[in-house]
Simulated scan of single mutants.
Amino acid sequence: MKQFLKISLIAVLVLGLVAGIKSPVLADESNSINEKLGVPIVVYGDNLTDEQKAETRELLEVTDPEMVDEHTVTGEDLARYINGNPNARMFSSAKITMEEEGEGLTINIITPDHITEVTSEMYANALLTAGVENATVDVASPVTVSGHSALTGIYKAYDVEGVELDKERMELANEELGLATDLAEKEGMNKEKVSELLAEIKQAIAEQNPANVEDIERIVQEQLDKMEISLSEEDRQLLINLFDKMRDLNIDFDQVKNQLSDIASKVQEQLGDIINDEGFWEKVGDFFSEFFQMLSDFFKGLFN
Rank of each mutant, 00 (worst) to 15 (best):
D277K: 05
M189Q: 06
T152P: 02
K193R: 15
D166Q: 06
R169A: 01
D166S: 10
V39G: 00
D262E: 14
K193C: 07
L60F: 07
S93H: 09
T181Q: 03
T74S: 12
P210F: 09
V220P: 05
K186N: 02
S92A: 15
N258I: 11
A19G: 11
E192V: 13
E61K: 12
D28V: 05
Y81V: 03
D77F: 03
N209I: 14
I110K: 10
R218L: 13
P112D: 03
E171Y: 00
E290L: 15
V73R: 09
V145E: 02
H114F: 08
T136V: 11
N174F: 04
F303R: 13
F288V: 13
D244T: 08
H114N: 15
G178P: 08
Q223A: 03
V12S: 13
A11P: 06
K202L: 11
R57H: 13
L60Q: 07
K2R: 15
T49A: 04
Y123H: 02
T72M: 12
V160I: 14
E29C: 09
T181M: 06
M67P: 02
T119A: 04
Q255D: 13
P86D: 04
A206K: 01
N174I: 04
D138C: 03
I201M: 08
I274L: 14
I219D: 06
T136H: 13
S149D: 10
E171W: 00
G147F: 05
N258S: 09
V118N: 02
E207K: 10
N190W: 08
V132P: 03
D166A: 08
A173F: 02
E185P: 01
P112I: 08
N190Y: 09
T144D: 11
I240N: 04
I205S: 09
I10T: 10
I109V: 15
E103F: 03
A150N: 04
A264E: 15
F288M: 07
R218M: 12
I229V: 10
D297M: 12
S92N: 09
A88F: 11
D262I: 12
V18D: 07
K191Q: 15
I263H: 09
A27K: 15
D77K: 02
I275P: 00
E58H: 11
N108S: 10
V145D: 01
E192N: 14
M227N: 10
I82V: 15
A27M: 13
T111A: 07
G84V: 07
I240W: 01
T119V: 05
D69V: 15
K257S: 13
I96N: 04
K156L: 07
T74C: 04
E282H: 08
S93N: 01
T129K: 04
A173V: 04
A184S: 10
S232K: 08
E269R: 14
I33C: 07
N212C: 06
S92D: 11
F253N: 01
V163E: 11
M246Y: 06
D215C: 00
L179T: 01
D159V: 02
P24Y: 12
E103P: 00
T152H: 02
M170P: 04
N34F: 02
I219Y: 06
A204E: 14
N276A: 08
L198W: 00
I110V: 14
K6I: 13
R247C: 00
F4S: 10
N108I: 04
R80E: 13
K191S: 15
F299M: 05
K167L: 12
V145Q: 01
V132N: 02
Q52H: 06
